[in-house]
Design a protein around this nucleic acid. Structure first.
Lengths: 217, 217
DNA sequence: TTCACAGTTTAGGCAGCACTAAATAATCTT
DNA sequence: AAGATTATTTAGTGCTGCCTAAACTGTGAA
């Protein structure tokens, strides 16, 4: 599998997780920041290799081996993120881009030794679960802050948009994974949410609220 | 710089270190395990980018920026080797291949943080010096076992052939970097050498002797 | 039901990096 | 110094992954 093929597989994997139906060519092209015709080319190659099932004009979905391969790449990505954060003291907004490169290193031994070195972490710095050696992992139970209920208390367990800007925003406001948050008020007008954590109150926009994942305590 | 370009630069760097004159197209092609015509193609590209100076039919040599770039790649390679050996418990015959991949990760921050994490090591598991952030390093003073003098005592400081088989041979005979070796006898007939270390005597072939580097104590 | 349009695929090209075969330059021999 | 040999380069090709432009498919609106 080439680097490009791995990236496409990963993109299909992420898109499948977002909406349960098949992945359209356009959606894939957009995710890959490329053109639909390029996506079609790659789709054919991946279908040829039995990594995806593909009916022209009907989108694609991962095959068993395709999903397994994608999960391996995701596992590597997330392990490297933990390594960068915990061992090399990267900040959580910096880890993603470097992990994008490291995830393509081909050495099962490396991956497993790294996993061991890190103490078999269960989640990455963004709260996403890390598959084990066999590809198994538990999805964390979570809802976005937008869907949280007024008056209840939650713990921050993940972020959806792992863009550097968003993570810096959270850093700047002292929100990190594990922060306990109480929902003070939900403003219907603009869907902003007033929250309270560490004895401070903060109003966050709908955009922020949608990208912050919580679990009720 | 693409992956292929980086590998060519590194190859030119290694060849320049071996013989001081310019690097011939054929030598480069052989080092890269490719054909001379492919080497010529790449030579043109690298010359275009001012990484090497090139006069057709006269071989190539690294420019200032080419050497600087090559040294950066070498630095990364050797740092990753140390990481794999010391942190992930790879054996010294396993580190090379994985480091070949890791050396191409593009992130100066990663390299420098890794260097720091490892405690700014001076040499890699094969005894080769690790350039610092600025590309500076000291060549270790060493002679091969073939050139060692009968009766004198040395310390093993490096290996030339970092092939897995050779390193396994050394492992199997309990020779590692730091081992103190006394030259008992040099056999003129086949250039084999009888050495003594850790109270055991061993006869090693010319091939082994040429690839083992020592420094006198 | 048909038409318009969005979504998708095909056709044809381009750049990177490899290859083979052929041409050319440098060097060695005698 | 000329021919033979070796080293190197050029020409032409294939493969990957991207592109644009054009053709095609499927669907929703009239």
């Amino acid at each position: 599998m080439t680097l490009a093929e791995e990236n496409y597989l990963k993109a299909i994997y992420h898109l499948e997780n977002q909406c349960n139906n098949g992945v359209s060519t356009n959606a894939l092209a957009e995710e890959m920041r490329t053109k639909a015709s390029s996506a079609t080319d790659m789709i054919k190659k991946l279908a040829e290799k039995n990594m995806i099932s593909y009916i022209p004009y009907q989108g694609v979905s991962l095959s068993k081996s395709g999903r397994s391969y994608a999960v391996k790449v995701v596992r590597k990505h997330r392990l490297w993120e933990v390594f960068l954060l915990e061992k090399l003291n990267f900040s959580w907004d910096e880890v993603h881009d470097v992990a994008e490169q490291l995830e393509h290193i081909k050495s099962e031994k490396l991956t497993d030794k790294l996993d061991e070195f890190l103490g078999f972490p269960k989640v990455d710095p963004h709260g996403d679960p890390i598959p084990d050696k066999h590809g198994n992992f538990e999805e964390v139970d979570k809802t976005s802050l937008s869907n949280a209920t007024k008056g209840l208390t939650y713990v921050c367990v993940g972020v959806d948009d792992s863009s550097s800007d968003f993570l810096k925003y959270l850093d700047g406001n002292n929100i990190s994974l594990g922060t306990t948050i109480k929902i003070i008020h939900k403003e219907p007008f603009d869907n902003s949410v007033k929250i309270k954590f560490n004895d401070v109150e903060l109003v966050v926009s709908q955009n922020v609220a949608k990208n912050l994942f919580l679990t009720e305590v």
